[in-house]
């Protein structure tokens, strides 16, 4: 993949609905590292991820990625796995995945293999509407595997996953880190990999 990546935020602030969620937040993340964003409910974990993904406009400060693809913006190099799975129930599992692979473009892996890795290869031809919450999450993880992006932004990624699913997800994260990727995850529980904590919402 790329060389050493360095994501750094300087003095980042976030205002939602007139309320200051956090301000002057500094953070760092490098290749091969998992940053676990922790804090109480409403401390702005999701907001921070959405700021990095370019889905929210920061109230101040800068977020830059060094060492990435110079032709691409930061959001274009990120995978965002939010609370919602971005799946269409009317399309089959394979159609959902291949749509995102085609639409997001860039370097990609074999879709069928990704589905096998997350344990959905038996269901490729079934409508995504038949899947349970945990299976939908697995299908979202298959998107992360199929389309290669160096930065993963994960919001409560282990929600809805069973124990086996969490183990599988842990090994996927290890592989991603070994390939030189980085992960920033908002979480309440353990992720199954070694993490560095970023505590937010303490100063309030």
């Amino acid at each position: 993949m790329q060389g050493k990546l360095q994501l750094s935020g300087r003095g980042v602030g976030c205002v939602r609905g007139g309320r200051e969620v956090f301000s002057r937040l500094d953070f760092e993340a490098t290749s091969g590292e998992v940053v676990a964003v922790v804090g109480r409910n409403g401390s702005g974990k999701t907001s921070l991820l959405r700021l990095i993904a370019g889905l929210l406009v920061p109230a101040g400060g800068t977020i830059v990625l060094e060492g990435g693809n110079p032709e691409m913006t930061l959001p274009e190099q990120c995978h965002y796995l939010g609370h919602r799975d971005a799946l269409k129930p009317a399309l089959t599992v394979a159609e959902n995945l291949s749509f995102w692979a085609d639409f997001l473009g860039g370097e990609r892996a074999d879709a069928a293999e990704s589905l096998a890795t997350v344990g959905l290869d038996h269901a490729t031809h079934l409508p995504a509407g038949f899947l349970s919450a945990g299976q939908r999450r697995r299908l979202s993880l298959a998107r992360l595997l199929t389309v290669r992006r160096p930065v993963w932004l994960l919001d409560e990624p282990t929600n809805a996953l069973d124990v086996a699913g969490q183990d599988m997800f842990g090994s996927l994260m290890q592989q991603h880190l070994a390939r030189g990727g980085m992960i920033i995850a908002a979480t309440h529980g353990p992720l199954g990999v070694e993490t560095r904590e970023l505590r937010i919402g303490e100063m309030a």
């Binding site: 993904a53 370019g54 889905l55 691409m72 959001p75 274009e76 990120c78 965002y80 939010g82 609370h83 919602r84 799975d85 971005a86 799946l87 269409k88 995102w100 639409f103 997001l104 473009g105 860039g106």
Partner: peptide
């Protein structure tokens, strides 16, 4: 509603 718009916004 299903979050697809987020990914479309982030894409190239």
């Amino acid at each position: 509603e299903d979050g697809s718009l987020d990914l479309i916004t982030m894409s190239r």
